[in-house]
Write a protein that binds this DNA or RNA. Structure first.
Lengths: 221, 221
DNA sequence: TCTTGCTTTACGGGTTCCCGTAAAAATAGC
DNA sequence: GCTATTTTTACGGGAACCCGTAAAGCAAGA
């Protein structure tokens, strides 16, 4: 089993349990911190003293408080740590449940496992740690299967840009101006109109209001 | 200190820690369950055997799974339990952070305390339990102060109705028809238009798209 | 260079939405 | 019962949006 584990979790209640769960697996050294910056420092020091950690268990979202941080999210932390210790095993433990987001984290950060904060999360954590220790990857069961629903649309950055502008109150007829300002390739009003109507057709929406709440819902804007 | 406490929390990890935290306060009997229906049953039985619980610690949101529940949220649970044991002390422990929502729960359910899942939540839980035991109410510090921002609008049920319809793709010109169907008093198109433009003026919004994402954001729709 | 196919833009008419004004209806007070 | 005030509705002109079509731009290949 792993020898040294570092837990990064800002919620005290969750931190306590994760610690307890890890200790029940017989891992001798479990360090726990509440801030990403602290986690990075401990990782650095452990590496310097040539006693690096085996496993990082990290949350994704960290609440801001009076103590300003350089690393403000689990994603930033993992990216930073990967620079100095690429072989480190990483397990993300987060409440984030959107398949698209979890999928993106697996691909972008090459993490070794993801456990969602949910009903059987303590048991799942143990399983995930075991699986990772054996060299495997722990992927949530609900992620393996259908990521996409029947009517799904792959949003391009262009789509997201114009939908964001709409949700910020920019008039549709003024969007071309903004696009030109930022040198975004199709900048014509017709292109904007066409794109919006295409998206709405696929998703079977009739109004922009529907589209923007949908995008808000899935965390796109 | 309290004698019998019931913990309702679907996340195993959180459940474990809350339990531990409560036990550290020297409370002899702490029952913990993962479903609202179970909580209700245990409350009922304890009342029948004339050994009722002193305190209920409950989450608000419970994830659905294969085991179908009658009570699907902490709010429903608390309402149901208040029917049979009105004097029970209730502490809500949830991740919900929107002041308006927390405020509504205090007023509608007359709960005795609210602790938000956040950085120092374990310590805060202990404080809250102590405060409630002494007969006080535990209100989050950030709620006491500014609930309202500079440009805030008090949404009526009428407002919410029409904004919901918009977000569902109903054309503005068709909204009067829906309002008549449900016998909602002002049903004219002009009334709808006037209301929307008033709201947008107060919130300094220019488009409906902005309004609906805002309402989505604050959990109104 | 010219053709072909694709993307982007320009234009126009029909619909919906916005907003002001005025009429109609409901409410309140006397 | 009547007037005064407010709320609701009706109407109309102008702006914004939707949608189809056609023209213009652009890339690749013969």
């Amino acid at each position: 089993m792993f020898k040294k584990v570092l837990i990064v979790e800002d919620h005290e209640v969750t931190n306590i349990s994760v610690r307890k769960t890890v200790e029940e697996l017989g891992i001798p050294i479990t360090k726990y911190v509440y801030y990403c910056d602290d986690a990075f420092t401990w990782m650095q020091n452990a590496l310097k003293s040539e006693e690096p950690y085996d496993l990082l268990i990290s949350d994704l979202f960290f609440e801001e408080d009076e103590i300003k941080q350089k690393l403000t999210s689990g994603i930033e932390l993992i990216k930073a740590i990967r620079q100095l210790q690429p072989n480190l095993k990483v397990l993300v433990f987060s409440a984030e449940g959107r398949p698209a987001t979890i999928d993106a984290i697996f691909k972008e950060l090459a993490i070794d496992g993801y456990v969602r904060k949910a009903r059987r999360d303590a048991q799942t954590l143990k399983q995930a740690i075991s699986t990772i220790y054996k060299g495997g990857k722990y992927i949530p069961t609900d992620l393996k299967q259908s990521i996409k629903r029947k009517n799904s649309h792959e949003f391009t950055t262009f789509d997201i840009t114009i939908i964001k502008l709409l949700s910020q109150g920019v008039l549709q007829k003024d969007i071309p101006f903004y696009l030109q300002q930022h040198n975004i390739k199709p900048s014509g009003l017709s292109s904007v109109e066409k794109r919006l109507s295409q998206i709405k057709e696929v998703l079977e929406f009739s109004k922009n209001e529907q589209l923007v709440v949908y995008c808000k819902e899935i965390g796109l804007i």
